[in-house]
Computed example of a mutant assay.
Amino acid sequence: MKYSENIEAIAELQPDYLGFIFWENSKRRFDSEEIPQLDSKIKKVGVFVDAKINEIIARKNQFDLDLIQLHGSESVAICEELQEQNIKIIKAFSINNQFDFSKLKQYIPYVDYFLFDTKGKLPGGNGITFDWKILENYSYEIPYFLSGGIGSTELEAVKQFIKTKAGKNCVAIDVNSRFELKSGYKNENKLRKFKKSLYEN
């Protein structure tokens, strides 16, 4: 999220999370001085890419962020140090068909969630889905967010996936670029329809 009036409009839809990107190279970078007041049920997620720990902590405190999403090549040590600051962590990994899930094991003691996104040119927001069947190789109990180019055309596939064994630990569907009118500005009507349909049998 980027624009105040759009943040307020999307918050009316009561998403579980709203993301705010603080990576300076992102066209969606959040550069306002404050986030509009949100319902306490909506968790504010700050997204960082290989940022310094002091910057992450400063942003967390400035915007009262509920979770931090690490979307770069952050080490286990960085996750451990942030956890020691009582910061809840989503660690993102870019997935392709050759992804080795065993590399996640070392992160398990220090993160609250994983996020699986499509491996692409950018750390995120590439607008491309990956083959979710590869998540059958995910054998850990830590819950994860499913990300990567998910739009309205993937709705039925998402509903089917979360019923599978591979989807049993999927606790959130992360949507972004496929619901934008412009970078960082989300289409309220499309998101409302998507959310409503997601919960229909």
Results as ranks from 00 to 15, higher is better:
residue 48 F to T: 00
residue 48 F to W: 07
residue 48 F to Y: 09
residue 51 A to W: 01
residue 51 A to S: 15
residue 52 K to N: 14
residue 55 E to M: 12
residue 57 I to Y: 06
residue 57 I to N: 09
residue 58 A to R: 11
residue 58 A to D: 14
residue 58 A to Y: 08
residue 58 A to G: 12
residue 59 R to W: 15
residue 65 L to K: 05
residue 66 D to A: 07
residue 67 L to H: 13
residue 70 L to H: 05
residue 70 L to Y: 04
residue 71 H to N: 14
residue 71 H to P: 02
residue 72 G to D: 06
residue 73 S to F: 07
residue 75 S to R: 02
residue 75 S to Y: 03
residue 76 V to P: 03
residue 76 V to E: 02
residue 77 A to I: 11
residue 78 I to Y: 01
residue 79 C to M: 04
residue 80 E to Q: 15
residue 81 E to H: 10
residue 83 Q to C: 08
residue 83 Q to S: 15
residue 83 Q to D: 12
residue 84 E to Q: 13
residue 84 E to N: 13
residue 85 Q to L: 11
residue 86 N to C: 11
residue 88 K to Q: 14
residue 89 I to A: 06
residue 90 I to Q: 03
residue 92 A to D: 00
residue 93 F to M: 03
residue 94 S to K: 15
residue 95 I to G: 07
residue 95 I to D: 03
residue 96 N to W: 01
residue 98 Q to V: 13
residue 98 Q to K: 15
residue 100 D to F: 11
residue 100 D to T: 00
residue 100 D to S: 07
residue 101 F to V: 00
residue 102 S to I: 14
residue 103 K to S: 12
residue 105 K to Y: 11
residue 106 Q to G: 05
residue 107 Y to E: 00
residue 107 Y to H: 06
residue 109 P to F: 13
residue 110 Y to R: 04
residue 111 V to E: 00
residue 112 D to H: 13
residue 114 F to V: 05
residue 114 F to S: 09
residue 116 F to Y: 11
residue 118 T to M: 08
residue 118 T to A: 10
residue 121 K to E: 15
residue 122 L to A: 13
residue 123 P to Q: 09
residue 123 P to I: 07
residue 123 P to M: 08
residue 124 G to R: 04
residue 125 G to H: 01
residue 125 G to W: 03
residue 127 G to W: 09
residue 127 G to S: 08
residue 127 G to E: 04
residue 128 I to Q: 14
residue 128 I to R: 12
residue 128 I to P: 03
residue 131 D to K: 10
residue 134 I to N: 08
residue 134 I to L: 07
residue 136 E to G: 12
residue 136 E to V: 06
residue 136 E to M: 09
residue 138 Y to I: 05
residue 143 P to C: 08
residue 145 F to C: 06
residue 146 L to H: 07
residue 148 G to L: 04
residue 149 G to S: 13
residue 149 G to H: 05
residue 149 G to Q: 05
residue 150 I to F: 02
residue 150 I to N: 01
residue 152 S to F: 10
residue 152 S to T: 13
residue 154 E to A: 08
residue 155 L to Y: 03
residue 156 E to K: 11
